[in-house]
C-alpha cells in the first residue's frame, strides 16, 4: 500500500520532488532488490512520458548498466477553431505531434546520460482559413465558395529524424521499480516541407512560387527541440 501511495505521488508531482523522494527512498531502500550487479545492469521496463512530441509510452531495455535501449511512441493532436465574427473569416489549426522513436541512452555518469537515435517524425501543422460570408466588390456580391479557401500545411523535411540529447535521471532504475528521467535534445528533421493550397479567387496564393518562399522562410527551422519527462517502471 505504501508503494502504491508513493507511485501515485511520484506520478503526480514534478521531477525535483520525485528525484528527492527517489533519493530518499533509495537511501531508505524501500523497494530493494537483491544487490546483484547483473540484475542492476540488465533489465526491462515500461515508461510513460510527456514530451514536446506529445504524451506517450516507451519500452525500455537496459542491456548493460550504461546502455539503455528505448522504443517508444508519442501522439498528440490539437484542433483549434477560429471563428471571428468581426472579419467573417473562420479558420482552423490542426497541430499533430507524434513520433515513433528508437533511442539509446548512454550513461556517462550515474544519472547523466546522452541519448541518440532515430525518430519517425509525425509532426504536422495544418492551418485552414475560409470566409463565412459574401463580400461585395463594387456592387458585385462574391460568395464564400467563389472567394475560396487557403490551406497551409507544414511537415518535417524528413520523416526519419536523427535525434541527439542529454538527460538526467534513469530511464530504468538500477535498483528500484520506479525511476524518473528528464532529457533535452534536438530532432534534426531538415528543412520543413510546406504544402500550400488555395481555391477560388485565392488560387494563385497557393502557387509553387509562394510555397517555395514559405519553405525557404521556414528552412532554418530544421531542428525540433525535444524536452522529455519520463516516468519508468521496471519489470525485470
Amino acid at each position: 500500500m505504501k508503494r502504491l501511495i508513493i507511485i501515485f505521488f511520484a506520478s503526480v508531482f514534478g521531477f525535483s520532488n520525485l528525484q528527492l523522494q527517489a533519493q530518499e527512498m533509495q537511501e531508505e531502500r524501500p523497494f530493494e532488490y537483491a544487490e546483484d550487479d547483473q540484475r542492476q545492469g540488465i533489465g526491462f521496463g515500461l515508461g510513460v512520458k510527456l514530451s514536446t512530441f506529445g504524451p506517450g509510452a516507451e519500452v525500455i531495455a537496459a542491456i548493460n548498466p550504461k546502455l539503455h535501449l528505448r522504443l517508444g511512441g508519442t501522439y498528440f493532436k490539437y484542433k483549434y477553431t477560429h471563428d471571428d465574427k468581426n472579419i467573417d473569416i473562420n479558420g482552423s489549426a490542426d497541430a499533430r505531434l507524434g513520433s515513433i522513436s528508437l533511442l539509446a541512452n548512454y550513461y556517462i555518469a550515474r544519472i547523466f546520460f546522452v541519448s541518440g537515435g532515430l525518430l519517425y517524425n509525425m509532426n504536422e501543422v495544418d492551418l485552414n482559413g475560409y470566409p463565412t460570408k459574401s463580400i461585395t466588390i463594387g456592387v458585385v456580391d462574391v460568395a464564400p465558395q467563389e472567394i475560396g479557401t487557403l490551406d497551409f500545411k507544414v511537415q518535417p523535411g524528413s520523416s526519419i529524424t536523427p535525434y541527439l540529447g542529454i538527460g538526467l535521471g534513469r530511464s530504468l532504475s538500477k535498483n528500484n521499480i520506479i525511476s524518473f528521467a528528464v532529457e533535452a535534445g534536438a530532432a534534426f528533421h531538415g528543412k520543413p516541407k510546406v504544402e500550400l493550397n488555395a481555391t477560388g479567387m485565392l488560387e494563385p496564393t497557393g502557387s509553387e512560387e509562394q510555397r517555395l518562399l514559405l519553405e525557404d522562410n521556414l528552412s532554418s527551422l530544421n531542428i525540433y527541440p525535444m524536452l522529455n519527462f519520463q516516468l519508468s517502471f521496471r519489470f525485470l
Binding site: 479567387m201 496564393t205 509562394q210 518562399l213 514559405l214 522562410n217 532554418s220 527541440p225
Partner: peptide, 23 residues
C-alpha cells in the same frame, strides 16, 4: 523554443495573398 517562435513569426515574410480578380 523562443528562437523557433521568432522564426515562425517571420515565416510568412514576403508571402502575399494573391487574388484572381475574375469576377
Amino acid at each position: 523554443l523562443i528562437s523557433s517562435c521568432k522564426k515562425l513569426k517571420d515565416s510568412a515574410e514576403g508571402a502575399k495573398l494573391i487574388i484572381n480578380y475574375d469576377l
